[in-house]
Amino acid sequence: MGEPGKVRSRTRAAKRARGLSDRTMAWLFVAPTIALLLAINIFPLVWMIRLSFTSLNLSMSYLPLRFVGLDNFSDILSDDDIWIRLQTTAQFVIASVALQVVVGFGLALLINRRFRGHSFWTTIILLPMMLSPAVVGNFWTFLYQPQIGLFNYVVAFLTGRDASSFQMLGDVTLSPWAIVIVDAWMWTPYVMLICLAGLRSIPDYIYEAAEVDRASKWRQFWSITLPMALPFIMLAVLFRGIENFKMFDMVNLLTGGGPGSTTEVASITLKRAAFESWRTGYSSAFAIILFVTVFGLANIYVKALNRVKSR
Rank of each mutant, 00 (worst) to 15 (best):
L99M: 14
S59D: 05
T89L: 10
D81I: 12
D71L: 15
R50F: 03
W47A: 04
D79P: 09
L37F: 02
I34D: 06
D71M: 14
W83G: 09
V101K: 05
D75R: 11
F92A: 01
T89C: 02
L70N: 11
L63G: 14
V97I: 11
A35Q: 07
A98D: 06
I82F: 15
F92C: 07
A35G: 08
V68W: 15
R50M: 04
F92D: 07
V46L: 15
V97N: 01
A95P: 04
A95Y: 09
A98V: 07
D80M: 09
L45Y: 06
L99Y: 08
L65K: 07
R85T: 10
L37T: 02
N72K: 13
L56R: 05
A35H: 05
D75N: 14
F43R: 02
Q87C: 01
L58S: 00
R66F: 08
G69D: 09
F73M: 14
T88N: 05
M60W: 01
A98E: 11
P64S: 05
L38C: 05
V101Q: 00
F43S: 02
L58I: 02
L56N: 00
I76P: 06
W83H: 10
I40F: 07
G69E: 09
S61M: 10
D81Q: 10
V46D: 04
L99K: 06
V46K: 01
A95I: 08
W83N: 07
S55K: 02
S55H: 11
T89A: 01
A90T: 09
V68C: 14
A90E: 09
A95R: 11
D79N: 11
N57D: 07
S74G: 13
R66E: 15
P32D: 02
D75T: 11
V68D: 14
S74F: 10
R85W: 06
A90P: 08
R50Y: 00
A90Y: 08
